[in-house]
């Protein structure tokens, strides 16, 4: 059954409103709405698209929406899917930003945000802890981690440059090690 463009927008809009937090949270939602209820994708395709979305640039949830929309209705479907998923974000942020600008000068709000600043640091450190085991686990990856961290603490290097340099170092390592990681 051919999905209508409006329905693609609607479903991804719905998924967008239910997304809290990043990355993989979208997978169960996609499974429910577009694999089980609508059969736009098979379960295998979803797994494939998720793996692929992690390896291409961009926000994972956005990429996987683009894949699914494309599968349902080619390029127009992909446009509808990405618009659908960014619309709830867009309006909720605009509303919140507006409210926060209005109240940020009240002492109690100031104090709350003072504390939230510490929360953000804690969230960043917890995130590192969560991705550590699958990111830094061999001689080469330890070397990369400490090399880049040291560089960043000394110089304000642009993250773009860091990503390009690490990609080059990774390929050199791959060639030198003959495809093995030691």
């Amino acid at each position: 059954m051919q999905a209508s463009l409006f329905e693609i927008f609607k479903i991804f809009f719905l998924i967008g409103t239910q997304l809290l937090g990043g990355g993989y949270v979208i997978v169960p939602l996609l499974k429910k709405y577009i694999v089980e209820e609508r059969q736009w994708l098979t379960e295998d395709e979803l797994v494939d698209y998720y793996a692929m979305s992690q390896c291409i640039p961009g926000i994972i949830a956005g990429n996987i929406a683009i894949c699914s929309g494309y599968k349902a209705r080619k390029t127009l479907g992909a446009i509808m899917a990405i618009l659908g998923i960014i619309t709830p974000s867009f309006f909720s942020i605009l509303i919140l930003a507006h409210i926060i600008t209005g109240i940020v000068d009240y002492p109690i709000v100031k104090n709350a945000f003072w504390g939230i600043r510490v929360s953000v640091i804690v969230l960043i450190l917890i995130t590192i802890k969560d991705i550590w085991a699958k990111s830094v686990n061999s001689k080469f990856t330890y070397f990369m981690f400490f090399l880049i961290l040291t560089a960043l603490m000394i110089l304000p290097v642009s993250p773009t440059l860091i990503i390009i340099i690490s990609a080059i170092l990774a390929l050199i390592h791959y060639k030198a090690a003959g495809g093995k990681d030691d």
Binding site: D48, Y49, A51, M52, C55, R117, V120, I121, I124, L125, T127, I128, I131, W132, K134, S135, V136, S138, F140, T141, Y142, M144, F145, F146, L147, I148, L149, L152, M153, P159, I162, I163, S166, A167, L169, A170, L171, H173, Y174, G179, D181
Partner: peptide
């Protein structure tokens, strides 16, 4: 989509890089 050898080789460098980027921000903040 097949994750080819080159892609996983790339990520061997990119994953610790994103960890280090985040760590530097956590530490600076």
């Amino acid at each position: 989509f097949k994750s080819c050898e080159y892609v996983s080789a790339l990520f061997l460098g990119l994953r610790p890089a994103s960890c280090a980027l985040l760590a530097s921000i956590g530490l600076k903040l």
